[in-house]
Structures are given as structure tokens and as C-alpha cells.
Amino acid sequence: MSHQETTLDCLPPGAVASVVRVEGEDQIARRLGDLGFWAGTLVEVVRRAPLGDPTQYGLRGYRLALRRVEARRVVVRPGQVP
């Protein structure tokens, strides 16, 4: 019954997903890890900015803005993990 894996930028506002992994080994990937994108972390897509980018996410008790390019690095599985 597991949902299809996708990337964070593809989710519409209001969606909730759990992180599978962060793609890449570079500084941005490391920073996404330092910001709380760990396997199993729940992420909520809160809203897009008025001009369409960046997007506000909610995770681990706080709010974070990411541009589409960075959000694409985060592989997620939509829907809440029980």
C-alpha cells in the first residue's frame, strides 16, 4: 500500500509527506540534513509565496522556506506514516 516516491517540490500546498532521503552529497544536501530533513521526518507543504516560489514548509516544529530547486533534492513519500 506504500505510496509512490516523489520529490518535495511536486507536492501541492496542504499535502503532508515523510522524508525518504536527500539527494546529493554537496553543501546544500548537507544543509538540508542539518535543517531536519531526516528519513521519517514529517513535512507539511504550507503555502507557495505570492509569486509562486519559494514554498513554505513545516517540519520538526518550525517553518522553512525553500526554493523549488532545493525542494527537488528531497525525496518523500506522500501521506502520513502511521
Binding site: 513535512v43 503555502r47 505570492p50 509569486l51
Partner: peptide, 24 residues
């Protein structure tokens, strides 16, 4: 509940200040 996103007054203020039409 540390792994989940939180809700607070901030989100209600943001609903206005970051509104698609009112934000700019």
C-alpha cells in the same frame, strides 16, 4: 511530538501576511 510540524498564532498571522493576493 517533536517530529511533527507545529501550529500556533504565527500561522494565523502568516495566513494574512503571506496571502497569495495580500502578501505583496
Amino acid at each position: 511530538g517533536s517530529a511533527a510540524p507545529a501550529r500556533s498564532l504565527t500561522d494565523r498571522i502568516d495566513a494574512v501576511l503571506l496571502h497569495p493576493l495580500l502578501g505583496l
